[in-house]
Design a protein around this nucleic acid. Structure first.
Lengths: 346, 346
DNA sequence: CTGAAAGCGCTTACAG
DNA sequence: CTGAAAGCGCTTACAG
């Protein structure tokens, strides 16, 4: 079929798509409505028409124009997914989980990075709206709750890592405090009493909760909290390296370190290595998040695991439910301690 | 403003957007055309009208409906980005580079994972088309060139890691062979002659090229190629661990190992560690890709670097050019060796 | 500079 | 079961 001349009209913007629903209809000798019905399986259509339409579709490998469907249907089958950095190993697994579930449901994901700051997160959210997403998944952002509720007026949102009851919204909290106490009880159970905490960035809710868990476990074991055993990191390897180095150089003694996340622990590993200290012989180390790379660190790292992949999958299920007007019924994944080779009895 | 009743019509699908261009026009006392012109800055508009329209837009925080624009304009300002796994540390940096450049140009990225197999890549490409992307970036896929050329008839494509001259297509090759010789010359320069190669997956073009570079450097130095020093990995940590373990157990002796990528090297590290061998004292190790985590491995890994982040940025620039009908003029990033602490003179 | 109108390519209530 | 028509919310050539 030669592409039919489109120049008849004198008005409107230029044409674009090579072959349209109308072309298929013409070729199959039916109306556009019928073609649409066959494609969408909306209504029964007689077999012979169906066959000829399907032949025409196959012949041209016709795909309905996405924007046109979107306009007619009022849906784009696209979900915006906000993480803090698309190249962060922590979020990576979560995005993977989201992708998998969304794809299975015929949705695609628009991923954007908030870079751990409100302005960028805000910008991403607007972009999502501008791109007409049907829903948004936010991985533990720092956007104020009020702002989220505002966006939720335009499209449904599921948010992880916080509790936010609001219409068109669903939250999947992360069990930071519980996880932290799990790590600490393990260390304390091994006889450690001088346990350093390499913290996350200041004021970050998850960081604060994990610190709270650290203190809670200390108290539980009747060990006095010693502020000087807490060093400020930034969730990254570099922060863990610097914080641990400072702790070491300042002469504080500790037999174990609980790190706010695995990346911080990897940084701590390097600091300890450079100081000639061995893990776990000289210092036991526990991380949080159980990154895939942590089973390959030397030695393999003991870590708290709350599967981010599963978190992502559930977030996807929740947003899909919201988008379809159903009430989500999903729970955050369980927290557990994965014991490897970085901890030992004192 | 109360949302105006929309029930006048008896036909067509249900309405959706709360406030539309028409509402803004009505409120500002101008035509829809004028509002559109102001939003797009297409044509000069008198100041007073402009002011009142902008006031109305601000008041309702009006955002033009994406699908409607897409339909009218024939563009969605969305780019499909195919990587092999969204949670692979190798691609992560590349995606980051893409995201940054695309965002700056007002485009958003639809990321999908090909999972290192043709069927999934094919599926992703169709999804991209179905979602009406304006262009596609493929990170080193295994889709046959012919298939890519076919998709390129529907929308422009830039592909990394291969050379594919075709209309509506631009390729950004990766310098695998050169990089491999850089790594090998370094090792040979340090006096190593028995150098193992922990390979990537069979038949993978990049893996083959890196192997070719390994052999080329050997030949250059008049060292006989010994097939039994080559062990099959799979690009992953687990493959590196298994391959290296087998090499060690089979009694092959080597003083250095060149790994097809950093993840493989991390696996090799663990195998060596378990065997009680020290890096670099007993065995020198070199990787390829220079992942961020490699500067925190113990010891920090010497690796070949061809910035994937920059590769991503350039791929984004290229697709943007293609989409706008310009000819891309970008080069793949340079290759260099980053020497850290995992190699030493024999 | 500005508005009325046509058109982008679909979907679906309506009327057979 | 099926077609003609209206409509989704924008943009832009056309005619002032």
């Amino acid at each position: 079929m030669k592409t039919p001349p489109r120049g008849e009209s004198k008005r409107g913007p230029r044409p674009r798509q090579l072959v349209t629903l109308r072309d298929i209809a013409r070729e199959a000798g039916v109306s556009a409505s019928t073609v649409s019905r066959i494609i969408n399986g909306t209504v029964k259509v007689s077999d012979e028409r169906k066959a000829s339409v399907e032949a025409a579709i196959a012949k041209h490998d016709f795909r309905p124009h996405a924007a046109a469907r979107g306009l007619a249907l009022g849906r784009t089958f696209t979900i915006g997914v906000l993480s803090q950095a698309i190249d962060s190993p922590f979020y990576a697994e979560g995005l993977r989980g989201v992708e998998r579930r969304l794809l299975a449901a015929g949705y695609a994901a628009l991923f954007m990075s908030g870079n751990w700051n409100v302005a960028d997160e805000q910008r991403c959210m607007r972009k999502f709206i501008d791109h007409g997403v049907d829903g948004i998944i936010m991985f533990s952002g720092c956007l104020p709750n009020a702002a989220i509720k505002d966006f939720a007026k335009r499209c449904p949102i599921v948010v992880t890592g916080r509790h936010l009851p609001a219409p068109q919204t669903y939250s999947l909290p992360i069990k930071d405090r519980l996880g932290a106490t799990l790590a600490m009880r393990h260390l304390i159970g091994l006889g450690h009493r001088r346990i350093a905490f390499i913290a996350g960035s200041e004021n970050h809710p998850d960081a604060l909760e994990r610190l709270a868990g650290y203190r809670e476990a200390l108290q539980e074991a009747h060990i006095a909290f010693e502020p000087r055993l807490v060093a400020q990191g930034d969730w990254q390897e570099s922060g863990g390296l610097i914080a641990t180095t400072q702790l070491l150089e300042s002469g504080r003694t500790f037999t174990a370190a609980f790190c706010v996340n695995d990346q911080t622990a990897h940084g701590a590993y390097l600091a300890l290595f450079r100081a000639g200290l061995k893990v776990p012989d000289d210092v036991s180390v526990v991380g949080f998040d159980d990154l895939p790379s942590s089973s390959y660190s030397l030695p393999p790292l003991t870590s708290v695991r709350q599967s981010v992949r599963v978190l992502g999958e559930r977030a996807a299920e929740a947003i899909l439910a919201l988008v379809c007007g159903r009430r989500p019924r999903v729970e955050p994944p369980p927290v557990e301690l994965v014991v490897r080779d970085s901890t030992r009895r004192l």
